[in-house]
């Protein structure tokens, strides 16, 4: 039964997943393609310096000094970090939240839940089977991004730390899965896709804004640590490949708690949307 649910989930989401994979490949190819041109432009340092701090944060430049030195913005890694890897979890996060918000709510709305749960299947089995399948899809999309960048770098003959890029993608994937799991929780709470999407989306935007603005809020700077985005910094990861174990703990913790809460809510609630 679970395999049948997985197969149907993959089949129904196939075109969406392929479209996202194609989009990521195009985006990665475009960024890799323009790097040689951009890297030769003079005055980019002044441009970066002139940007408001929040805008630099938004582009993934958290440390201006580091961004301007030789291991910073003007390296291939620095450019990739600013123009691609800092946006990658945001982009794929949108897809993750959209799919997570509908994981059980969409079936409840269309009346399919009554058919699915009339079969020998636990409620938690349905939810977790779907969630794991979609996490696998998100993993595949992350792998597509990794391969696209590696192929692009090879074609440009730009040296890049393959392991560093792998680790950066892995931590980004952790963040994406955490965002997805929270959306799954809201889907189980509301059983309405639009409401789950609104709450999960708003929460994610809020977390992103806190991550960007909190460092400039002085005594309230600690708020940054409340945002899951704070535990993903692409530039240091791409430069050194040093993974902060705390990031893994945070993202694993959010994912496990959110999915456990989602199954508990879904298991005990009335199936009425």
């Amino acid at each position: 039964m679970k395999i049948a649910i997985m197969a149907v989930h993959l089949r129904l989401g196939m075109y969406g997943s392929l479209a996202w994979a194609g989009g990521l490949i195009i985006y990665a190819a475009a960024i890799v393609w323009i790097y040689p041109t951009v890297s030769e432009v003079e005055g980019m340092g002044d441009y970066l310096e002139a940007m408001p701090e929040q805008f630099r944060e938004l582009a993934g430049v958290t440390d201006l000094t580091q961004a301007l030195d030789e291991k910073g913005f003007f390296t291939f890694e620095g450019f990739l970090s600013t123009e691609y890897m800092s946006w990658f979890p945001v982009l794929l996060g949108i897809y993750a939240i959209t799919s997570g918000a509908g994981i059980v709510a969409r079936d409840a709305e269309r009346g399919a839940l009554d058919i699915l749960l009339a079969q020998p299947l636990h409620r938690y089995g349905l939810l977790l089977t779907r969630a794991v399948t979609q996490i696998a899809v998100l993993g595949m999309l992350t792998a597509v991004s990794l391969v696209a960048l590696l192929v692009g770098a090879a074609l440009l003959a730009e040296p890049i730390g393959k392991v560093d890029l792998l680790y950066t993608h892995a931590i980004a994937f952790g963040l994406i899965v955490a965002l997805y799991s929270v959306a799954v929780f809201w889907s189980a709470v509301f059983l309405r896709t639009s409401r789950a999407l609104a709450v999960a989306g708003l929460g994610t935007v809020l977390a992103y804004v806190i991550n960007v603005l909190a460092p400039s809020l002085g005594p309230l700077g600690w708020l940054e640590k409340l945002s899951p985005f704070a535990y993903y910094e692409s530039l240091p990861l791409l430069n050194t490949g040093d993974v902060d174990p705390f990031s893994i703990i945070v993202y694993s913790g959010i994912t496990l708690v959110a999915l456990a809460a989602a199954t508990r809510v879904f298991e005990h609630r009335d199936l009425v949307s």
Binding site: V8, L12, G111, A112
Partner: peptide, 25 residues
């Protein structure tokens, strides 16, 4: 066995695939 009132299932599935989905276990 259960037939819900006014039910709907994934429109993209064929009737046979729908039965396969329901045949598990």
């Amino acid at each position: 066995g259960n037939l819900p009132g006014d039910f709907m299932i994934y429109p993209q599935l064929t009737v046979d695939a729908f039965f396969k989905l329901c045949s598990g276990g």
